[in-house]
Design a protein around this nucleic acid. Structure first.
Length: 602
RNA sequence: GACUUGGUAGCUCAGCUGGAUAGAGCAACUGCCUUCUAAGCAGUAGGCCAUUGGUUCGAAUCCAAUCCAGGUCACCA
């Protein structure tokens, strides 16, 4: 149990004993004590003053007295200032904590809670390569899944690939028209980029044809429909749905190129899925549910045959769930897929990592599922994230300002290589590395910087991606945290020798006091499980990023003031080794929850 | 227009289930490497928490209104 939880429980019990009032521990507010005051944690008393009919001062001293005498192992002393009860936690408590956590190697792990959570993320279209927005999506989804797993949930990572529809047909038509049989292999192009190039060519050609038609006097909106290339695309979609062999063949081939490209990208960014769904297999789902919904009167049919749901009572609109020709719309598929996934996995919660432009859609989806009484309905959670913008404004494909994922990762690794190489040469550390190890290090740092940069802000907020800041290695960045880890490992290699024998552990029995910076670091370390809980319940990896940064900072402050190798005593040395060891563990685990590796040396 | 999300240091962001004098990082300025990794540490400066009103012992945090910015309101996905 965390120290804060212990204080809450103890205080609740104390109030019960002293005043005969039953109090939930959760009703008690406990904060970290402000640095200006003496103490580690503070119980805020105002909330109880009325109920217990006591002055804050009297309440504080009675409660403080009770706590220190009944929990002598936990509280050393207390003071009361203006309704704040400041508690000093005993050094023994912290020493105990550090020793135990440092030795068991599983610090931060939660036991299984029996819940199953499905996390859907990435969900790309197969007509063009991944871009910066997809990266935020992937990192968020992957990390949220990792955090929930660390929190004790059983996890299924999934992805729905939008592999069919008009957008793919556009690439296919353009390939037929312009490629002369070219392939990714024949042009030495990554498959997804190859197909994306034809998507671009489609749009160029369409624009040209529209201009021609407009010059011939056609109205603009008509010109787009009448453009031959557009008509051909529409026809191709019809042929695809009819299963015309040549079209299916081309579709399969081009998609397979794209998947090859995606797989390469996923591999470099460290993304993966337990189960992949394809829209071509799921786009017909949901129709039977619509029928059932009709008989249950959840839906109604208009004269033209289209099927609707009226959500105006819930403050939303009327939504179509099936077209008059009996074909399904987007949301129909989503309902069907939600049911199918539930039948396959029975997840208690199903998280959709999708941009905030779909907030309304997701609200509608959940509501419809609830009205239909689907068992999956209440577990639907939209992990909504904001757009990634550039300092110059939004990314626009028409203006060519979309940041390509592969290019970006490559650039990050390149810059990481330059800075790292320079540093290693300056300090002479380069001698410690082998060639292959260096290449790996550049990737670790470049990708780590990128992930950290995208994950460190609250998901729901839109974020500005400033390329210059993203490659920074100072301050609130991935490389800073990685550096701290490497630094600790270096110390442990040199100083920890012999003290870390398996099972023996590090003992600090003779040491009974903690210096301020030692305690500050211990306090940070003790927070880790609580932070995992918070990040998990809020589905928010930024909580982990912020925590891991604060921890690294706390360690560096400690490290700059106190020597480990030349500690004042053997006991101090042991304690500091424990602190360093535990810090490295927690950094590694915490960064791991963000999908970021930490090097042994850098 | 309706609904919705946001507005905190020059910039990027924490803090928001109400609690003590609002915090980081970057940028600027000052110090600190003959000692375990200076990709570091310590310090200075920088704020009417968009505005106005309300709720109360107490509001950046809750409520209302206003202003500004984004998103959505397709038989598109």
């Amino acid at each position: 149990m965390s120290i804060v939880a212990q204080i809450k429980a103890a205080a609740a019990k104390a109030i019960n004993h002293l005043y005969g009032v039953a109090m939930e521990p959760s009703a008690i507010l406990v904060n970290a004590t402000k640095p200006e005051f003496e103490g580690d944690y503070t119980v805020v008393l105002f909330a109880f003053v009325k109920q217990l009919k006591k002055s804050p001062d009297a309440l504080g001293s009675e409660l403080g007295g009770y706590l220190t005498s009944h929990h002598a192992g936990l509280f050393a002393s207390f003071n009361v200032i203006k309704g704040f009860l400041n508690l000093v936690v005993t050094d023994a408590y912290w020493l105990d904590f550090v020793e135990q956590a440092s030795n068991n190697g599983t610090y931060g792990d939660h036991i299984c809670n029996g819940r199953k959570v499905m996390v859907e993320y990435s969900s790309p279209n197969t007509n063009k390569p991944l871009h910066l927005g997809h990266l935020r999506n992937n990192f968020l989804g992957w990390s949220t899944a990792a955090i929930l797993r660390a929190n004790g949930n059983d996890i299924v990572k999934t992805c729905i690939v939008n592999d069919r529809g008009i957008h793919i047909c556009k690439s296919m038509i353009a390939w037929q028209l312009f490629a002369n049989g070219a392939t990714p292999a024949s042009t030495h192009t990554k498959g997804d980029h190859f197909v994306g190039d034809y998507y671009v060519q489609f749009n160029d050609e369409l624009k040209r044809q529209i201009e021609t038609l407009k010059a011939e006097g056609l109205a603009p909106e008509l010109a787009e429909k009448e453009a031959p290339i557009m008509k051909a695309t529409q026809q191709m979609l019809v042929d695809w749905e009819a299963g015309k062999p040549e079209v299916m063949e081309l579709w399969r081939t081009m998609n397979s190129w794209v998947y090859e490209g995606f797989d390469a990208t996923y591999k470099t960014i460290g993304s993966d899925f337990d189960k992949v769904y394809y829209e071509s297999n799921t786009y017909l789902l949901g129709k039977d549910i619509v029928q059932k919904g009709l008989t249950k009167n959840v839906f109604y049919k208009k004269e033209d045959g289209s099927v609707w749901i009226d959500l105006t009572a819930d403050g939303l609109d009327e939504k179509v769930v099936m077209r008059k020709d009996g074909t399904s719309v987007y949301i129909t598929q989503d309902i069907g897929l939600a049911e199918q996934r539930y039948n396959e996995y029975h997840a208690n919660e199903s998280i959709y990592v999708i941009g905030d432009e779909q907030n309304y859609h997701m609200k509608v989806l959940k509501l419809i599922c609830q009205k239909l009484g689907l068992p999956s309905a209440d577990g639907i959670y939209h992990l909504s994230y904001g757009m990634v913008e550039l300092p110059t404004g939004k990314m626009k494909s028409r203006e060519g300002t979309v940041v390509d994922a592969d290019d970006l990762v490559e650039e990050m690794v390149k810059v990481a290589k330059e800075t790292t190489l320079k540093k290693l040469e300056e300090t002479g550390k380069i001698k410690e590395f082998e060639a292959g190890e260096l290449e790996q290090l550049y990737k670790t740092i470049g990708l780590g910087g990128l992930k950290f940069f995208l994950l460190r802000v609250d998901p729901k907020k839109k974020m500005i991606f400033n390329p210059e800041e993203s490659i920074d290695i100072h301050g609130f960045t991935g490389p800073f945290v990685q550096y701290t880890h490497a630094r600790i490992k270096s110390i442990l290699r040199k100083v920890g020798e012999g003290l870390r024998a398996e099972g023996e552990g590090l003992r600090a029995e003779g040491e009974s006091t903690l210096l301020k910076l030692e305690k500050d670091l211990s306090v940070q370390l003790e927070l880790f499980p609580t932070v995992i809980d918070e990040a998990a319940t809020e589905h928010d990896p930024s909580k982990i990023a912020i925590y891991v940064f604060n921890l690294a900072q706390a360690f560096n402050s400690f490290y700059s003031q106190h020597s480990i190798a030349n500690a004042e005593s053997e006991e101090k040395k042991t304690l500091r080794l424990q602190l360093a060891n535990l810090t490295a563990q927690v950094i590694k685990k915490g960064m791991g929850l963000l999908g970021i590796e930490v090097p042994e040396r850098m």
